[in-house]
Structures are given as C-alpha cells and as structure tokens.
Amino acid sequence: MQQHTEGHPPHPRRLVLATRNVYKITELRAILGESGLDVELVGADAYPEVPDVKETGVTFAENALLKAHALARATGHPAIADDSGLCVDVLGGAPGIFSARWSGGHGNDRANLDLLLAQLADVPDEHRGAHFECAAALALPDGTERVVSGRLTGTLRREPVGGGGFGYDPVLQPHGETRTCAELTPDEKNAISHRGKAFRAIAPIVRELLG
C-alpha cells in the first residue's frame, strides 16, 4: 500500500499508454484531464526495456488488448493501447487491421494511399463510403480488461488533399465536411476523430477501475 505523509496527497496512479507517439500521449492526457482524473500518464518510452508487441489479432480490439495486457504485465501498471485503421465499404472492411501495411511494407503512407486509390479507381462516388475505426483497451496487471471503440465515417476522395494528419487522412472526407481529415486543424480533427471518441469513451472506465 502506498504510504504518504499526513497533509501530503499520495502520488497519482501511473497509467501507461502503449505508444511512442507523443501526439497520442498528449491527446489522451488532455482527455483524462478533462475528466478530472488524477493519473500520471506515460508512454512506452518510459519502459525502453519492454519490447513492442506483435499485432497478431484479427480485429482492432484483439490487437489493442494484446498490447495493453503485455504492457500491464511487463510494467506492473494499468495500461491502455489502441489499434485503428481505415475500413472501406466496397472492400468488405479492408484494409482494416492491415491499413498500415496495405502496400506490403509497414508505415509507407504514400504507397498505401496510391494502392488503395488504384483499387477504387472505377468505384463511383456514391459507393466510396468508408470509416476510420479505433479500438482502445485498458488492461490491469491482474488481468482485468475493458475495450471500447470509436468511429469516424465519411467518403473517399479520388486524390489526396491536405498536408496535415497522416495515413489515409488526405483521402477521407468526414460526413458533413467539405474538407478531408488532412485539411482539418488538429483541434477540429480531435473533436470528431475515431481515436478521440475511443479515448473519451475509455476515460470513465479508467475512473471506475482506478478510482
């Protein structure tokens, strides 16, 4: 049990986010702060000895849970992990979990975009529906787990537009918008994004499980 001197509050509970992406850490830290949660959020960089987890699941939720459980076991602290991607209606939900490596290599955004647009070249505008999906998982060292998801729906442009964001942001135009995700400001994107929705959904679960 954590000891603390009379009159001094205990240190906040540490929560580990399974990412080395500073942007994601900042985003979740802000969302938890808005929820009034007193937790110390750190990224995976705080534990450089812990190896990255292979994403062998067949759904976003499975991959998020794999990463969260591995980090919770390795660090002894509650852990959050997310997995996300683009799901295209006419492709039956693909690229899905293969979004980051759709063109073969991992993380080659331009090659992934070019291949996807080529595959959809003959698809008429009314059938170019797609959505970004994100699963966020919370795992405790004792094996307790929770998983939630968020979605951003829209249609796919025929050419990339905008210099912001990453991945498939330049081709997804959210419903109700005239701009692609890559043309939105970071604040505009966070307000509607699949990851923002998933992180906001997991905040009350963090409160419930960590107090």
Rank of each mutant, 00 (worst) to 15 (best):
Q2D: 13
G164H: 08
I192V: 09
H11L: 02
I25A: 11
E188P: 09
T180W: 02
A100W: 04
V147D: 01
Q2W: 07
T19M: 08
R207E: 14
P124G: 06
V171D: 01
Y23H: 08
S84A: 10
E27P: 00
T5Q: 15
T59G: 04
A44K: 12
G105K: 15
T178D: 09
E133F: 13
D82M: 04
I31V: 09
E145C: 10
I25G: 01
E49W: 15
D89H: 04
G211W: 08
P204I: 10
V90W: 13
L172D: 01
F60P: 01
R200N: 01
A44Q: 15
L209C: 02
R158H: 09
T19I: 07
L116F: 14
Q2P: 13
A100K: 11
E62K: 03
S99Y: 15
P174G: 01
L209F: 06
V39P: 01
H131E: 06
P204Y: 15
H131C: 12
P186E: 12
F199N: 03
G57K: 04
P10N: 02
G105M: 05
G165F: 14
V171W: 04
H106R: 07
R13S: 13
P186I: 09
F60L: 03
K54P: 08
N21D: 04
A30M: 01
G211K: 10
D52M: 12
N108R: 11
R151W: 08
A203H: 06
D109I: 07
H69R: 15
E188L: 02
L120M: 14
L172F: 05
C87F: 15
S149T: 08
S149M: 03
L152Y: 02
E133K: 11
A121F: 14
F166E: 04
L86F: 13
L117Y: 07
D114C: 02
L113A: 04
V50L: 11
P170F: 14
A139W: 05
L156I: 14
R200V: 00
L210C: 03
G104F: 08
D109Q: 10
L156P: 12
S149N: 05
R207I: 05
P141K: 00
L91S: 08
A18R: 10
G57N: 04
G43M: 05
P48F: 15
